[in-house]
Design a binder for these strands. Structure first.
Lengths: 98, 98
DNA sequence: ATAACATATAGATGATTGTCAATGCGTTGA
DNA sequence: TCAACGCATTGACAATCATCTATATGTTAT
C-alpha cells in the first residue's frame, strides 16, 4: 500500500453510493441483485460502481452461475486504514517552517 | 460524522496531491508557501486544494499577517477513521441473501 | 432450441474536477 | 504612499465521472 493505492481507494470511497455498498458488504457476501435493491440506480450503474470497487481491490467478485457475488476485501481495507493512520501520526522528514 | 461527511472526506483525500498535503501537515503546522514547495502545481491550484481540505474540516487555516497557516484537524481525522472502521465491522440490519 | 434471467459492456451526455493565467485583496516594509 | 509580497478568487478549459439507454454475453429452465 502506497500513496497512489490509498488515493485510489479514497477516490473509490468518495462516492456516497460506493461507500454505502461497502457498508452493506461489511455485513457479508451479497449478490448484485441484492445490492441493487438498496439503491435508486440502474443495473449498469451499479455494475460500474462494482468495477471501480474491485479495481482498487477493496471488493472481490466471484461468479456462481448467473449470479455475481461480492465480498469486502478486509485485508485491503485494513491496510488502507493503517496506511492513512500512519500517514497522520508518523512525522516526515521535512521540518521546514516559515 | 455521518456517511455524507465521510464521503466528502474520502473525496478530499482522493486526490494524490491532497493526500500528500495531509501527510505533510501531519508533521505540524505549515504555511502555504512551504506546502507549495513540495509540489509542481501553481499557487492558485494549491489554494484550491486547501479550500477543499478545509471545507470538510480536515484542515484548519489561520491567518497571521501575510501568511496562512494550516494545521491538520486530528479530531476530524480520528472521527473519520473510526467511522469507516465501524462501517466495515458492525453488521447492518439487512441480512438478505440471494 | 428457446425464452427468461443476471450481469457486463458500449456509447452518449451532463456534471464535476484539477489545473492554469489573470487579477484582486490585505499586509508589510521602504 | 507605494511597491513588493502572500494568498484568494475568477474564469476558462480539458479531462474525468456518474448516470442513463441500448445491447451483448453467459446461464438456467422449459
Amino acid at each position: 500500500m502506497n500513496e497512489t493505492d490509498a488515493a485510489l481507494i479514497c477516490k473509490a470511497l468518495g462516492d456516497p453510493n460506493r461507500l454505502k455498498i461497502v457498508k452493506i458488504l461489511a455485513d457479508g457476501e451479497k449478490c448484485a441483485c441484492v445490492l441493487l435493491e438498496a439503491f435508486q440506480i440502474t443495473q449498469p450503474t451499479l455494475s460500474h460502481h462494482m468495477k471501480i470497487l474491485c479495481s482498487c481491490n477493496l471488493v472481490q467478485a466471484s461468479k456462481e452461475g448467473k449470479w455475481s457475488h461480492y465480498t469486502l476485501n478486509r485485508r485491503t481495507f485494513d491496510e488502507f486504514i493503517s496506511f492513512i493512520t500512519k500517514t497522520t501520526t508518523s512525522p516526515n522528514d521535512e521540518k521546514e517552517n516559515c
